[in-house]
Computed example of a mutant assay.
Amino acid sequence: MPSIEVGTVGGGTSLPAQAACLDVVGCRGATQAPGRPGENAQQMAKVVAGATLAGELSLVAALASNQLVRAHMQHNRKPQAPSST
């Protein structure tokens, strides 16, 4: 993911839920180490990229095993049209 943009400072990062999530992955706020600006944002980008990759792998596995179609058919909430046979 060459151009992913994430932030760990400003915006909603000071809200309790967002701050707690950033604390869980260890990348809240600005990097405190001198000479290493953006380290927390880079870590957050890695977390987002990893989660995206996991989701894509799960999707491919569901498609390959026909589980995606089966789940959609099972949980389809549209009323079935009466057949005209």
Results as ranks from 00 to 15, higher is better:
10 G>S: 08
10 G>V: 04
10 G>T: 05
10 G>Y: 06
11 G>N: 08
12 G>Q: 14
12 G>V: 07
12 G>Y: 13
12 G>H: 11
13 T>P: 11
13 T>L: 10
14 S>N: 12
14 S>E: 13
14 S>I: 00
15 L>F: 07
15 L>H: 10
15 L>D: 14
15 L>S: 13
15 L>E: 15
16 P>G: 04
16 P>R: 03
16 P>K: 03
17 A>Y: 03
17 A>G: 01
18 Q>K: 10
18 Q>C: 13
18 Q>G: 00
19 A>G: 09
19 A>C: 06
20 A>Y: 02
20 A>R: 07
20 A>T: 02
21 C>I: 06
21 C>W: 08
22 L>K: 01
22 L>T: 01
22 L>Y: 01
22 L>N: 02
22 L>G: 02
22 L>F: 03
22 L>P: 03
23 D>G: 04
23 D>N: 13
23 D>E: 14
23 D>M: 02
23 D>K: 09
24 V>Q: 11
24 V>K: 11
24 V>I: 12
25 V>R: 09
25 V>C: 15
26 G>I: 02
26 G>L: 07
27 C>S: 12
28 R>C: 08
28 R>L: 15
28 R>G: 09
29 G>A: 10
29 G>R: 06
29 G>T: 06
29 G>Q: 10
30 A>Y: 07
30 A>L: 11
30 A>W: 04
30 A>I: 01
31 T>I: 02
32 Q>G: 13
33 A>H: 11
33 A>K: 14
33 A>C: 04
33 A>W: 07
34 P>H: 08
34 P>S: 12
35 G>L: 02
35 G>K: 02
35 G>D: 05
35 G>I: 00
36 R>L: 15
36 R>N: 14
37 P>N: 03
37 P>T: 00
37 P>C: 03
37 P>G: 04
38 G>Y: 10
38 G>C: 11
38 G>F: 09
39 E>N: 04
39 E>V: 02
39 E>P: 02
40 N>T: 04
40 N>R: 13
40 N>D: 09
40 N>Q: 13
40 N>A: 07
40 N>V: 03
40 N>M: 06
